[in-house]
Design a protein around this nucleic acid. Structure first.
Length: 486
RNA sequence: CGGGGAGUAGCUCAGUCCGGCAGAGCACUGGCUUUGGGAGCCAGGGGCCGCGGGUUCAAAUCCCGCCUCCCCGACCA
């Protein structure tokens, strides 16, 4: 177990806090290669739980998993001009195998469009072959300048959906549907509220027609792009000659989409819910939903207490609860409390001689609503029904807490530029403003305030108070959500 | 990739200026006593001092090159 006492408080240095949580909660550690991390079992388990949930949702919406190769010929990337321009600066290129120089260098995929579309061109011939609804779980490499564990690593794990459709409307429907799947996952599983909407041209995926995104607000009031869904139009179909024959016998390019979320979501989870005591995990994604800490003074008590702990464990397992019994000897209960709190376990059950005698266990929640009891004794006989209810309640509470944080740090209509600037300087958060639609204006605000347009919000997320003028004073084309971002 | 800081035991660091046996606390192992919010005593184990080269009788320490991490910028999931 890692030593150390208190973490750096979030208010003192948020990124130091973040790095310490990653280390001390045993989520990840560094590797010898720049920007590459080792995902440790506890962190990987969170990712596995995310994968399991998302994978089910993808399958429920008709997608199938496949796997495409890690390498693509360098020439393939060049096929779509914008795509190439977008990714060329950050690709890793293999030029040698052993001592021999390769005839054509290979690119390690930064994303798989350029690998998948040449293949799909062979698979798709007729309107009867459409839609193609694929997903793959894979690793990709992007040689970013500045890396941070989970948030931006040189190699990262993700899923990438790739679909082909007969019509523009079908592709758009798919793009929006998958954005909705992401939103549902983020809110229901990660307990992380998001704003969804359209990206501006400057933040659009290289080669896409339109990029939609889920934007979440972290505890330090910076925004994190948590997932993206792209309507690729016919751009990739044209670049890779993916055509199908219509019912009428015409040859048409397919309409395609791609969408992805990555291990960045683990970073999002840390920053959306964590506090000065460490990680706070939503029960649905917690490797251990419950940790049982037995307490004893002598061998006899140890036997009694452990027997009770195993009994409780049986009950909870049968009730579908993921639990861990911390029966390590020679470590005081208090030390175990600190450790599991730092690692974000939603619910702790303490079982001591007094509890066994009384037929109860002491439950302690990792996070509770203000004014609510953190420690509550529970009758052992009721655990099978009460604990699952508590876990659902904790899940809901964490979501509400994150929602409240976002509401507290959102301004719904800013017209005055000085006011906007002050908001971004004094803590920041989401600011709804108008936007004239000009890229120059967007860039100027970015240079000046470090804040960017996160999204042009979807209808549901629009502000009734959004101004009809841009920050530059010109007429507003649409309302936008601005924030400083990761 | 530019500017700044750092790398010595698993972790946090002292030692580097001024070259001369590799250190502390925590963690780890064993024993005894403990155990309801970070236990105590005793005994132990653990080091390519980031890597490579150079200077020197002698390098953690001085010189050169590189790698990695952290912070600030430009680039991005």
């Amino acid at each position: 177990m890692s030593g150390g006492k208190a973490l750096t408080p979030q208010s003192e240095d948020f990124s130091a806090w973040y790095n310490e949580v990653v280390q001390h909660a045993q989520l990840a550690s560094h590797s010898p290669v720049r920007g590459c991390m080792v995902i440790r079992p506890y962190g990987y388990r969170i990712w596995e739980l995310m994968q399991a949930s998302l994978d089910g949702m993808f399958k429920d919406t008709g997608h199938e998993n496949a796997y495409f190769p890690l390498f693509l010929p360098k020439s393939a990337l060049d096929r779509e001009a914008q795509h190439f321009e977008g990714f060329a600066p950050e690709t890793a290129i293999v030029t040698h195998a052993g001592n021999a120089e390769l005839e054509e260098p290979l690119v390690v995929r930064p994303t798989s469009e350029a690998i998948i579309w040449p293949i799909l061109a062979d698979w798709i011939h007729s309107y009867r072959d459409l839609p193609v609804l694929l997903n793959q779980w894979a690793n990709v490499v992007r040689w970013e300048m500045r890396t941070r564990p989970f948030l931006r690593t040189t190699e990262f794990l993700w899923q990438e959906g790739h679909t082909a459709h007969a019509t523009e409307a079908d592709a758009e429907e798919e793009t929006v549907r998958m954005l909705g799947v992401y939103r549902t996952f983020m809110e229901e599983w990660m307990a992380m509220p998001v704003v969804t909407g359209l990206k501006t041209d400057s933040e659009r995926f290289a080669g896409a027609l339109r990029t939609y995104a889920c934007e979440a607000l972290m505890k330090d009031n910076k925004a994190l792009q948590a997932g993206t869904s792209h309507n690729l139009g016919q751009n990739f179909a044209r670049a890779f000659e993916v055509r199908y024959q219509t019912e009428e016998g015409e040859h048409e390019y397919v309409w395609s989409t791609s969408w992805g979320v990555s291990t960045r979501l683990v970073g999002a989870l840390i920053m959306a819910h964590g506090d000065d005591a460490g990680l706070v995990l939503p029960p649905l994604l917690a490797p251990h939903q419950v940790v049982i800490v037995p307490i004893w003074r002598d061998g006899e008590q140890q036997q009694t207490v452990l027997a009770a702990a195993h009994r409780v464990g049986q009950t909870l397992s049968s009730a579908g609860v993921r639990l861990h019994l911390d029966d390590r000897e020679g470590i005081n209960p208090g030390a175990k409390y600190y450790e599991w709190e730092r690692r974000g376990v939603p619910l702790r059950l303490e079982i001591g001689p007094r509890d066994v005698a009384a037929g109860v266990v002491m439950s302690v929640r990792r996070s509770v609503a203000e004014g609510a009891q953190r420690k509550v004794p529970l009758a052992e006989a009721d655990l099978g029904t009460v604990v699952p209810v508590m876990l659902r309640d904790i899940q809901e509470h964490i979501l509400q807490q994150a929602r409240a944080h976002r509401e507290r740090n959102t301004v719904w209509g800013v017209t005055d530029y000085a006011e906007f600037r002050q908001f971004m300087e004094e803590g920041g958060g989401f600011a709804y403003t108008g936007w004239c639609g000009s890229a120059e204006c967007e860039q100027r605000v970015k240079d000046d305030t470090k804040s960017t347009v996160r999204v042009i919000p979807d209808e549901e997320f629009r502000s009734p108070d959004a101004p009809d003028v841009c920050l530059c004073g010109a007429d507003s084309l649409c309302q936008v959500v601005r924030a400083r971002a990761y």
